[in-house]
Nucleic acid binder design. Sequence first.
DNA 1: TTGAAAGCGATACCAC
DNA 2: GTGGTATCGCTTTCAA
Lengths: 332, 332
Amino acid sequence: MVTIDDVARAAGVSTSTVSYALSGRRPISPATRERVAAAIAELGYHPHAGARALASSRSSVLALVAPLRSDINVPVIMEFVTAVVTAAREHSYDVLLLTKDEGTAGLQRVAGGAMVDALIVMDVESDDARVPALLKLRQPSVLIGLPSEPTGLTCVDLDFEATARACVEHLAGRGHRRIALVGPAPGVYQRGTSYANRFLTGFTAAVGALGADVVAEPCDPSRAGVRDCLDRIGPDVTGLVVHNEAALMPLLDLLRVDGRRVPEDVSVVAVCPRDAVPPLPVRLTTAEIPAHEVGTLAVTMAMRLLDSPVATPPETRLLPPVIVERDSVSPI
Amino acid sequence: MVTIDDVARAAGVSTSTVSYALSGRRPISPATRERVAAAIAELGYHPHAGARALASSRSSVLALVAPLRSDINVPVIMEFVTAVVTAAREHSYDVLLLTKDEGTAGLQRVAGGAMVDALIVMDVESDDARVPALLKLRQPSVLIGLPSEPTGLTCVDLDFEATARACVEHLAGRGHRRIALVGPAPGVYQRGTSYANRFLTGFTAAVGALGADVVAEPCDPSRAGVRDCLDRIGPDVTGLVVHNEAALMPLLDLLRVDGRRVPEDVSVVAVCPRDAVPPLPVRLTTAEIPAHEVGTLAVTMAMRLLDSPVATPPETRLLPPVIVERDSVSPI
DNA sequence: TTGAAAGCGATACCAC
DNA sequence: GTGGTATCGCTTTCAA
């Protein structure tokens, strides 16, 4: 292996000079800088990450905890992951991928072993066992999601409550009064998944403000599950808010089978990321899930926590909803 | 930070004893082992990963290079990633996630810096620029896919050529003679993506063996793209092999619109992983993409390369096709 | 079965 | 603007 000493020798300088030439943490004369750069290129030198981490107590690695096997939206997860990895690389960080399955132990392992400088945690539940564990770590963390007790933690997410409200108001503004929510799979609620509950809260409040009955049903995304969900909702709604991407396809198909046209008989607003709108016959009006923005922002916030010489005050950022009007909503 | 010396002191033994108690690389008396374990638990000791990597020249990290933004099947990628991360953890390895975008430079960075002990590379192209780079690394690598020149590299994948043959034979065995391939998006072929070409090769050979005309069209998975693809294929095929999961939904819908029933008028075999079969009205007969097995196997092979004291001969494993019969194929 | 001590390859402090 | 070197926390050889 080529070491920093090899480079120093080849360039005719000391190891510290090579180190400083690399980090830029002290001035180096152009001539020296150039000789060092040449030696590095010639020898194909790559600093040893472990040695660097040991000496500097910084690993330049971010942990990303993702729900890798679950009933929640796969494309959305991929978009988060992509955004985080890409943004991290722009800050010269690498990403260590952990599964949610590892739970608290995984966080402690990678943080305790100083493998990572900061953690980004997706799919946070309202009352998440990992939250107290994160607060005890030496490394800062950023949550994608919003636990019920976020004190002391930095969080970022779409404002799902406002998003639900925006969906309802979009329909209400076009005359709809009988509006139902087709929610995520039952398991998502049972786990206390933060975003599902926040969406439901916003939906309930918005429909209540309209003085209408609140109809909200979880929905298993199988064809049978969607059939069942539609039956529970009943035949007389005119507006459907669908917070379940996987259910969209069977849902639209079953509406067709039932002879209910979209948007003539039923208007539909779907919650899903721009890039994952299913290629259905009707172009869906959606509330966007800005997964890319959220992921990028999570990295930015993590970098701020790492940069700040003193403790940065924890902050929660909820992105405002964006409704993209397409063809699945019509006035009543 | 709690160090190994703290643990040694607390347990009243030497640091080397703690190290060996941890690694099990030399016999330790039960009494000592216990005192060490107690001290570790009490102090909450986690070995410093960087220090360990520096001293042992092993990082216990695997690099996984995934195509994070692409036109290829997102659920399949997720299934690979999940399988790799899960299998890696079972061998006490962590996973560093790289994007394909980083190309050769990314490989050299993480390998040169000794961040990882081995690399697993997904989405290999037939003539992949990364292949020569991988051969030059000190760390072993496993490809998921099959480059045209795999000499010296360990590869694992579904046998796409045999899979295409199996699809065609499945249809031919039920009397179909006019069989067409709905392939991946044009870009996938243009990139020279290995699996797409191998599938096409197998398809062409199998249809040729039947003495029938070979009809194979790439397919953009938008609704318009699928429409276009169907038009190019023409109206008189009775069997469709669909190697494009995203296109399935619009495809089935357009067939319905055209009044062509599945499977009465057209039989369909789809290539897709078991867990990602779309919830369509017709339960699709599929050729499985065993993403989980392939991912797990990739890790196993990487471990074998790491374990073997001498160079293990490179090996290519192609998993045999499995057709799962459901309701989208009927005899003619 | 255990201990002492020499590295591993960087960083960053202290000098000049 | 540059050099020397103690130090980071662990593994592993050598010795007992």
